[in-house]
Design a binder for these strands. Structure first.
Lengths: 336, 336
DNA sequence: CTGAAAGCGCTTACAG
DNA sequence: CTGAAAGCGCTTACAG
């Protein structure tokens, strides 16, 4: 690493103080009334020396880094991958940079990440909170660092959040299946105390019971840590039971993809033998021999709203709390 | 944003100088022989005050940020998405953070990104270079900032790089098709001066001509900017021509997926009517009714080697140049 | 219109 | 074993 060009080098070359150079470089000449010709010489020198400001020094002085910390729940999940992309792109429009970490749904890892980002003085957080991370979020709030939760939130905490209307998502999906003549509809979800999962389950329950199908309710809850093997055994047991399942709704895309893998392997005909509704979408849903009907989240909007909310918080220091709940879309194809 | 706890606060509370606190916090007590009980009191105070070191200040002082700048070519491409994940995970093992940007194959955007990262004083770069970015890479090298290229490189530049053996990848794929009895094999690629694409094309050409099929060579080159529409028209023209194409090799995963979309829509039976070899893999290849044979890149290895090489460069200041060329794997399924 | 100086929060020789 | 002090590269009142 070679010694880099600093303000001082430019100042020396032009024969002025670093203050002048700083004014010109940061575009404040107008206010400070730096003479046009001095400004010109400074700009020229900066170009000649290929000056690049040291953002670290500026950050230390100004107390702001133009950096956002993004903690997602699972980097292996394409849904979050896409979300990262949107957020990154969007942040760039505001001249912010994003540093990303995956908690892998583990609260210890989450804490490590949040601390590392905090040490790096991020100006704000966007977090997809894992289970048992309430205290971590509380700590951030207490330090008055702007934070917005995404995809999930805690009822106990009055935070900004952007989430899907998860209840509506599964309520509508279930109803759609029922209207299409399916009755014995199973629901595969993760066992979780997190509100998004509970809401998805509630949507399914409500739709079933409101349709007089309470006795057909069949909720399968898997642990996130379960392997594809356990997953397939469970699915196998479900499908070979005497309950005669005629449809399955998967509560997120990891479950959907795992499910499709199994059904594909077993050569179970969709929708003839079994109807399917997936979650979150993706190329595989489109390219499946029988394109999959699924709940589509407005990822673009989620990301944009998250950044917009965070920027409001950072810039206006606004003290309102935003709860933004976005509508799901049921994309209807051939799988049911 | 609330005033944060600093070394000074701890020093004041314990009644020592900030130097002592710094030694203890950064784990240097042994060397500096801070008395055990003072060290203990400092640690306790740090914990009581929930002290988090200010990494920005440390970076400014030490001249290192423990941050890596990662510039990929296209954030929408799942291949790069996965690569980001691997690199991020791997960097974390070394206690480094990654900031990511996508050049979208545009050299202007690439320059903007590299400058922004440079201003943020990244300790090193990992770059998937876009076309016409030689000067940008040269600039980095000249500033003695560690950099390793990934996926592609420039023949004109003596840089560190990690790439697939692209020639072998398509040479073997083409040969595999030929051995399976296919003759009229088309190759869909992007028009590009970049070495990875040219190597993939060369592999195809060589395999065809070595097999006496020179007259069957059929290279389709698309611009990266081409829409799915143009893509489909081209594919349509190709398949309805009197050349009787019996197989297509796609030169990367974007082309593969676009191709599958088209073939799926047109109900072209694979492999009966047309054999297919894809590139890079993914769930859609697995879940396609006729699972797709494809060239698999060792993404995990690419990412790990990139980080390892960069860490060597940063830490040992090693002045050797690494050219790492990894082997492709042809994953054989049912599409040909 | 311009400059001297303080200070952001650290680390690290140096002196004792 | 401990402290005073310089300095990383900026920005920004303040004074002229």
């Amino acid at each position: 690493m070679i010694k880099q060009v600093s303000l001082k080098d430019i100042a020396k070359k032009v024969g002025v103080s670093t203050a002048l150079v700083s004014y010109v470089i940061s575009g404040k000449e107008k206010d400070k009334k730096v003479s046009a010709k001095v400004a010109q010489r400074i700009r020229q020198a900066a170009k000649d020396l290929k000056y690049q400001p040291n953002a670290i020094a500026r950050s230390l002085r100004k107390g702001t880094t133009k950096t956002i910390g993004l903690v997602i729940a699972d980097i292996a999940n394409p849904f979050f991958g896409q979300l990262c992309r949107v957020i990154e792109d969007e942040a760039q429009n505001y001249d912010y940079v994003v540093i990303i970490g995956s908690s892998d749904e583990d609260h210890n890892k989450s804490e490590l990440l949040i601390n590392a980002m905090h040490q790096r003085q991020v100006d704000g957080f966007i977090i997809v909170p894992a289970e048992n991370t309430i205290e971590q979020i509380q700590d951030i709030i207490q330090k008055k660092i702007p934070v917005v939760l995404v995809d999930r939130y805690f009822n106990e905490l009055n935070t900004n959040y952007i989430v899907l209307d998860n209840y509506k998502a599964t309520f509508n999906s279930t109803l759609y299946l029922i209207k299409s003549g399916y009755k014995s509809i199973a629901f595969m979800a993760y066992k979780s105390s997190l509100v998004h999962m509970m809401e998805r389950i509630r949507g399914y329950f409500e739709a079933m019971s409101q349709s007089g199908l309470t006795d057909k309710i069949n909720l399968i809850e898997l642990k996130i840590s379960n392997t594809q093997n356990i997953f397939e055994n469970t699915l196998n047991k479900l499908l070979t039971s005497d309950k005669k399942i005629d449809a399955i709704i998967f509560a997120n895309n990891m479950l959907s993809i795992a499910g499709l893998h199994y059904l594909h392997k077993q050569n179970i005909r969709i929708p003839e033998e079994l109807a399917i509704i997936g979650f979150d979408g993706g190329d595989c849903f489109d390219l499946f021999y029988s394109p999959i009907t699924y709940v589509k989240q407005p990822i673009e909007d989620i990301g944009k709203e998250a950044i917009r909310t965070l920027m409001d918080l950072i810039h206006d220091g606004s003290n309102k709390t935003s709860h933004i709940i976005l509508n799901p879309e049921l994309v209807i194809r051939n799988s049911c």
